[in-house]
Design a protein around this nucleic acid. Structure first.
Lengths: 174, 174
DNA sequence: TGTTTCATGTAAGACGTTACATGATTGG
DNA sequence: CCAATCATGTAACGTCTTACATGAAACA
């Protein structure tokens, strides 16, 4: 149920419409919690019905600007303080590693080399992202987004190193 | 659709019933692709209907032993060779990091410290797992499971280091 | 005989994706 | 006037979780 809290969090700094929120998702949260348009609109309706958001203003083209209510803010804090994050439990990438034995050695090595490449590519993409963001403006999202970005940089580096190590392991077998 | 391929992969070495497969999931794949009983039985039926598995034997209590067909084996290889793994895109843990600004400093630090602790705990659990597994017996799963385990060890270590670094960052703010 | 283990299945509900559908407003 | 952008909503479908339901066989 984290989409709920992602929306609440994005509304802390300023009210916004569903359309605005989609853009905020695509820019700031794209790498940690992507959401589709249809999901966002549906959840906003439900959040408003539950009293965690309210329609603060209406604009042209049926635009509805949602604002956080006190209950919404309280719920966001409750989520952060009282509930444990759930780590992702599934990894398509690692599942495949278990079954590498059905391939011949060359194919298995190609798979692991591919992992290394993709990790390196992601590392590069994150470095570019770091350059492109205007960190100066401050605000909660950019301050803490920076921490998240560093996580991504370290994670992609770790994956690349692991994949290169795994290549060596497979090469040394037999 | 990776559950499909997880089941095919687990059936490479030997035929098994849904019940057996659940146990294999819980032991070998628990950390990369957990599955529930109801999911497994449903998918086995669909895989057999699609001709990727066949009921090789029936036993007491309605037991059905499934075996990989040639098409099933081909599909497993096709998946490994021709399709790209999808990395997980959502991280509850990192989503929360974005919103740490709504908490006061002590609470934010407590959250990050909690991340470090959980990562350290997972690292310890994986080390114990490494000890407890009988690596000698060989077989595809244990050989490659070892690679996956090393990934887990590196990943949990990385997370702990990142969380400790993030604590410092937050402490140094202002 | 009674408990544990083996064994399979169904149903309801949450969440996510893709696609479809509609239309107002702005700007060139 | 035409295209792009703004703006919201619905429907179908697939996956995963939780819970319910049932019963045979082994074993003590």
């Amino acid at each position: 149920m984290s989409l709920r809290h992602a929306l609440l969090g994005l509304l802390v700094d300023a009210p916004a419409s569903g359309y605005d929120l989609m853009k905020r998702f695509d820019t700031s949260l794209a790498n940690v919690w992507p959401a589709t348009q249809s999901q966002v609109y549906g959840e906003l309706t439900r959040l408003a019905a539950a009293g965690l958001l309210e329609v603060a203003a209406e604009g042209p083209r049926g635009r509805k600007e949602y604002a956080l209510t006190d209950e919404g803010f309280a719920e966001l804090r409750r989520w952060l303080v009282d509930t444990q994050p759930e780590p992702p439990r599934r990894s398509d990438t690692l599942l495949r590693v278990f079954f590498l034995g059905v391939l011949d050695r060359e194919q298995a090595l190609a798979y692991l080399a591919g992992m290394a490449e993709r990790a390196a590519g992601e590392h590069g993409a994150l470095e570019e992202l770091e350059q492109s963001i205007d960190w100066g403006e401050g605000g909660m999202l950019s301050t803490n987004g920076r921490l998240a970005l560093e996580f991504g940089l370290r994670f992609s580096a770790m994956r690349e190193e692991w994949a290169r190590w795994a290549v060596q392991q497979v090469e040394q077998q037999r």
